[in-house]
């Protein structure tokens, strides 16, 4: 049987890639997809821990993460569409009105 460390390492790598995507990419859609990547890596960690402790709670939490991710995508994409309509861009650096 594989140790849980292998799954956690994969989860960490995927999460970090998601972070880099959020920080580096300027296309709002790709930033969003990167966030989905991070959510999935966390899901993997939850399921790995659920397996290690043989508790079903970790899997239930993943279920809820799925729900929240769905909602987040729906609302987030709606926002992106609206921003694109009003400003004709999806570059998040162009949306910087809220600054000091």
């Amino acid at each position: 049987m594989l140790p849980v460390a292998a799954y956690l390492a994969l989860s960490a790598v995927l999460f970090t890639m998601g972070v880099v995507g959020v920080l580096v990419r300027r296309n709002a859609l790709i930033v969003f997809i990167s966030i989905e990547l991070m959510l999935n890596s966390v899901n993997l960690a939850f399921i790995a821990f659920a397996r290690q402790h043989l508790g079903i709670d970790g899997q239930v939490i993943v279920f809820f993460v799925l729900v929240v991710a769905a909602v987040e995508v729906v609302v987030g994409l709606a926002l992106i569409v609206e921003i694109f309509r009003s400003r004709s861009t999806v570059d998040i650096d162009d949306v910087d009105l809220l600054r000091g």
């Binding site: 998040i92 910087d96 809220l98």
Partner: peptide, 15 residues
Amino acid sequence: ASRRLQTGYARQYAL
């Protein structure tokens, strides 16, 4: 002084 921290760039906040 601290208003300069607020650049308006979401990526910088994320950083």
